[in-house]
């Protein structure tokens, strides 16, 4: 129990240090670019493919139910709302926790084990600002963007699936998809993934950066990064959804 509280404390301090350091000069622009490319661009195929598949599957499932109630015209609406509100942000977050979280954890742990972090420090480069802050920043920036890719590829998957069932026109699908959407249930859920990104970046960096177990610490850091960031994302989601409802009461369905 004490260990758990200690752990929470040290992760929080780590996260706080990220925020403080990210506001302090020098800004590692090139490093951030590098990490955005790594975290964002390289995750695109995974996110788009998953979104597409999930969109297709979702439609196949909801279709049966909605047709039973004679509400087949609601399929695009349900699909879009589900994706934009929850599935897109959450699944993108979890996928990124898996792909990027483990990567960050392993890379930083390996750098720690092979003294690369010491190497950076010996060059008088603040390794925290150089390694951790850009990774967290990249996650914060990339995840909302990846979520959008997820949302729209999900919509596309849903459309194709629906097109083969009912030959719905693309324009009609899109117009129905957005018919019940308000800005607050597009913008807020998309931006909440920045918090997910922060969680992934901070938790994974924490496990990677602070390991001191040499080579076997690398695998452990990777695993822990994924487990803890996924868990925290889901927990944070609960709180964020409540916060969004609080901020935009008309969103509460």
């Amino acid at each position: 129990m004490i260990e758990l509280i200690e752990f929470i404390g040290s992760v929080s301090r780590f996260g706080f240090r990220v925020i403080v350091d990210s506001l302090r000069r020098p800004f590692e622009g090139a490093q951030i670019m590098r990490q955005v490319a790594e975290v964002g661009y390289r995750s695109l195929p995974l996110v788009i493919a998953s979104g597409f598949a999930l969109g297709t599957v979702m439609t196949l499932h909801t279709r049966n139910t909605l047709v039973t109630f004679g509400a087949s015209s609601m399929i695009p609406t349900v699909q879009a709302l589900a994706f934009f509100l929850e599935i897109g942000p959450l699944v993108a977050g979890l996928l990124l926790a898996g792909r990027v979280g483990s990567g960050i954890g392993a890379v930083l742990a390996n750098m720690r084990a092979t003294e690369q972090i010491d190497g950076i420090e010996s060059l008088s480069i603040d390794s925290f600002k150089f390694l951790v802050v850009p990774r967290v920043a990249a996650c914060v920036v990339a995840l909302p963007l990846l979520t959008l890719f997820m949302d729209f590829s999900g919509l596309l998957g849903g459309f194709l699936s629906e097109f083969f069932s009912s030959h719905i026109a693309f324009h009609l699908y899109i117009s129905r998809a957005f018919s019940n959407m308000s800005w607050s249930n597009f913008i807020a859920p998309t931006l909440k993934t920045a918090v997910f990104g922060f969680i992934i970046g901070v938790v994974s960096s924490f496990f990677g950066y602070t390991t001191n177990e040499g080579a076997q610490g690398v695998g452990k850091a990777a695993t822990r990064s994924v487990v803890f960031s996924s868990l925290l994302i889901i927990l944070a989601d609960v709180i964020l959804i409540k916060l969004i409802f609080f901020a935009f009461p008309e969103n509460a369905l």
């Binding site: 955005v36 661009y41 934009f84 998309t190």
Partner: peptide, 30 residues
């Protein structure tokens, strides 16, 4: 280095485009 900037630029631009598209889709209705 240039190549990477290109990649990041493409990624960010595509993402922002989707965001804008979403905004306008909803904006149209409202």
């Amino acid at each position: 280095m240039k190549n990477r900037n290109l990649i990041v630029g493409l990624f960010v631009l595509a993402g922002l485009t989707l965001f804008t598209v979403g905004l306008f889709m909803i904006g149209n209705r409202h």
